[in-house]
């Protein structure tokens, strides 16, 4: 039963990827601007542009281009950058760990703080702890990252000089320096995610707390921590997990503002820079990669659903 469920979800994921891939393929070819012209530059030699176009395969009929695209994709070949000639796959693989380390770290911290905080606030609904959480999260939700990022930067790097303003050190190279470089971007991202998760968890916990089986557990004399942990969490976590999945999928595709502010060479910056430079193979590669990440994360969320709730396992 469980295996059928997993297989079905994987198949759905593959289908989603195929559709997203085709959409990206079409999108790149529909938008104005000729990459061949860009590559040649302001020379004004039609023959040269045509030759470049032919070398890129852009002169062939669309279905043929699609087949070519699909078979390349199946081989893991995303093409080469028009600007630098680097393999697109390599470029993405360099940028992704940067984004991933910021996002995964921030999300883990936000979840570890936000989820228990949300549950606790719901348990204490209408009392000081609850009002405090609702107040803090309201403030956090209304602060955009481009603003909080700059403020943090000004305070901790410019005024206090505690942390480096720019620069990224891979964690694998120098763990200490790498972590120090991540403190500010991760911190800013945590603040943004925390509020959403805590709010989400609070409201779904409130819903579950109203149900008979919670009263029933209390009537059996089960302690508050056990009620929250054993009875509430698994039933209330699903909506938060969905949000968490969407959030992760979204953020792993690039945290443009934070990457820009703190000078991190992540996916978001790569994508924006490539769009400006009309480096289509990279744009295409990034979009495909983002779609891939989304499908993977949501697949994991779906499987976790089934692990949490026995009724989902069909």
């Amino acid at each position: 039963m469980m295996l059928t469920f997993i297989l079905r979800r994987v198949a759905q994921g593959l289908l989603t990827l195929a559709i997203a891939g085709t959409a990206v393929f079409l999108l790149i070819r529909v938008i104005p601007g000729d990459p061949a012209q860009m590559l040649v530059g302001d020379v004004g030699d039609p023959a040269m542009v045509a030759a470049t176009r032919a070398s890129l395969g852009l002169d062939r009929p669309l279905p043929e281009q699609w087949l070519l695209f699909a078979s390349d994709l199946a081989n893991g070949d995303l093409g080469t950058s028009i600007m630098t000639g680097q393999q697109v796959r390599e470029v993405i693989m360099q940028a992704f760990p940067v984004t991933a380390s910021v996002v995964l770290l921030a999300t883990a911290i936000a979840a570890l703080i936000g989820i228990p905080a949300g549950m606790w606030a719901a348990w204490r609904q209408g009392r000081a702890a609850d009002y405090l959480l609702v107040g803090i999260t309201s403030v956090l939700l209304s602060v955009p990252t481009f603003w909080s990022g700059l403020i943090v930067l000004v305070i901790f790097s410019v005024k206090l000089g505690w942390l480096p303003a720019l620069g990224y050190v891979p964690l694998g190279e120098d763990l200490r320096a790498g972590l120090i470089a991540l403190i500010m971007p991760v911190g800013v991202l945590v603040l943004a995610e925390l509020a959403t998760l805590a709010r989400m968890m609070r409201s779904s916990t409130l819903e579950v707390l109203r149900l008979d089986y919670i009263t029933s557990a209390q009537a059996r004399g089960v302690a508050p921590w056990a009620v929250l942990l054993r009875h509430v969490f698994r039933n209330a976590f699903a909506p938060t997990m969905t949000t968490l999945g969407l959030m992760l999928g979204h953020l792993l595709g690039g945290v443009v503002v934070i990457e820009k502010i703190f000078g991190l060479p992540g996916i978001g910056r790569l994508l924006v820079d490539s769009i400006v430079q009309r480096d289509y193979p990279i744009v295409q590669g990034c979009l495909l990669f983002v779609a891939f990440i989304f499908v993977i994360v949501n697949l994991i969320v779906d499987l976790l659903y089934a692990a949490l709730d026995p009724r989902v396992r069909v």
Partner: peptide
């Protein structure tokens, strides 16, 4: 809690919602 767990027991109206589904 100890009173509820030793001396009393309670049954509710909705058997569908009085047991934790997970």
């Amino acid at each position: 809690r100890s009173l509820r767990g030793r001396t009393t027991g309670m049954v509710f109206q909705e058997p569908m919602s009085a047991l934790n589904p997970t």
